[in-house]
Design a protein around this nucleic acid. Structure first.
Lengths: 241, 241
DNA sequence: CGGAAACTTGAAACCTTTCAAGAGTCGTGG
DNA sequence: CCACGACTCTTGAAAGGTTTCAAGTTTCCG
């Protein structure tokens, strides 16, 4: 398995930020121990949701910042004609909720692609907490800035040919799995070809064709949703940035 | 003229945030008077640069948050092959510098498309200032969130046909000029067709063709860089969101 | 096990780009 | 003040990449 198993409810250990194996990616990155302890008192821990349900929906009041602990989430929004646009895919350790700061209402919906568990830093506490934890503001601004830069990466990708887009998508996923201690060369896609295509601005048929083409050129091996990277250097060479 | 004239250096009035006609758009939005006065002491005011020069360049240390007072700026980045990608166009009252929070280094260059003047809130002061001005954090997070949402709008646009992209681009510009007290139906584009095309993911020839097509259908009137909107409702109906 | 959804593959259609050539605009210097 | 040169803009025609439509196959879940 490539994703963390949700905590068995029988053996409910009290996982804290201190003992969470994702703290290197999450908010505690950059905070000292005393600050993390302050953070702990506020954070709502280990909420879980089933596949297909929403962590939050577009239009709802800003929940706050959510830290994904296990499972995968798709961030998506609709235009006024009802077309869906996949904005991002989130892995364990990723933060979400940045779509709620502008207007106090979420501009996207966050949908669980697998069973997920997550922690939540409520929106109305962020202000207060930033005053108590001096190190929190730089962390928040940094994460926020990362969102901005990721948007630019997506922009660049959207101007590249289809094969580069998919290759960069796979390379990015691979790198993120590696950062999380999973295999960088073998992983399971939790999203459909349709969702990948939507995210990359391609028709699902095109995604399917490219997977076949990549397989023929022995770049990767595809078995349904299982991806095995055969030639990482060549995959990385595809990426524009 | 559609843009503010730079201050004549002979008649250098001491423009403060208090007397600045852009404070509704800028950082002081949401701060009380005492807070604005604190802000004033830190902000470096009324720097000016000639057309074609950079406010900052990709790779430089994060300057901070810049507030554009007059002129137009293009925000752009390069991929490793040296291709340029126009990320945004900034008008008076807009903030820039959000591309520097992730890594402490700017991921974009900000180039003046006309003579510009701007104020600057230095990066190393932001932390300190946020502690002294409680109202500043929400303002910062809100602006940062707005950047995120604008990125989503760009994403949606990039999936729409060329004519919708250009129409939405014009509608958005028009609305922003209106907010700034300029005409919403008649304005001057400070960027080239090439830059518009780059921003929208279109070849400059396509932009040119669309302008002609829009003119034939009496949606707008084009005289070089001067745009006259003839049918605003129809222009707005084009926009996906 | 059965039905629905997801995936794959082919062929035609379509939108946008590329290539090319000519017209227009702007700033500068004689 | 006009002329020159460079850059920008416009327009046409062909080429190309991606989508759409269609049909068959596989996978997944109840």
């Amino acid at each position: 398995m490539t994703s963390q198993r949700p905590l068995a409810s029988g053996a409910r250990l009290r996982i804290t930020c201190d003992t969470c194996n994702l703290s290197k990616l999450c908010i505690p990155r950059g905070l000292n121990q005393g600050e993390v302890e302050l953070l702990e008192r506020i954070v709502r821990r280990n909420r879980t949701l089933d596949k297909g349900t929403a962590l939050y929906r577009s239009g709802e009041w800003h929940h706050g910042i959510l830290a994904l602990k296990s499972g995968t989430v798709k961030l998506a929004t609709l235009d006024r004609q009802g077309n869906e646009y996949v904005v991002d895919f989130l892995l364990p350790g990723d933060l979400l909720g940045f779509d709620g700061f502008a207007s106090q209402r979420h501009s996207c919906s966050a949908i669980a692609l697998e069973t997920v568990s997550y922690c939540e830093l409520p929106a109305h506490q962020i202000d207060l907490l930033t005053r108590e934890i001096p190190g929190l503001l730089p962390v928040l601004m940094q994460h926020s800035g990362t969102q901005f830069d990721l948007g630019i990466q997506r922009l660049i990708l959207s101007r590249r040919p289809a094969e580069e887009r998919l290759a960069a998508f796979l390379a990015h996923l691979s790198e993120r799995y590696r950062q999380r201690g999973f295999s960088a060369v073998e992983f399971r896609l939790s999203m459909t070809r349709q969702e990948i295509g939507n995210y990359l601005g391609l028709a699902p048929e095109t995604v399917s064709r490219l997977f076949s083409q990549f397989e023929e050129s022995r770049l990767i091996e595809v078995r349904g949703k299982l991806i095995h990277v055969l030639d990482m250097p060549r995959l990385l060479a595809f990426c524009p940035s």
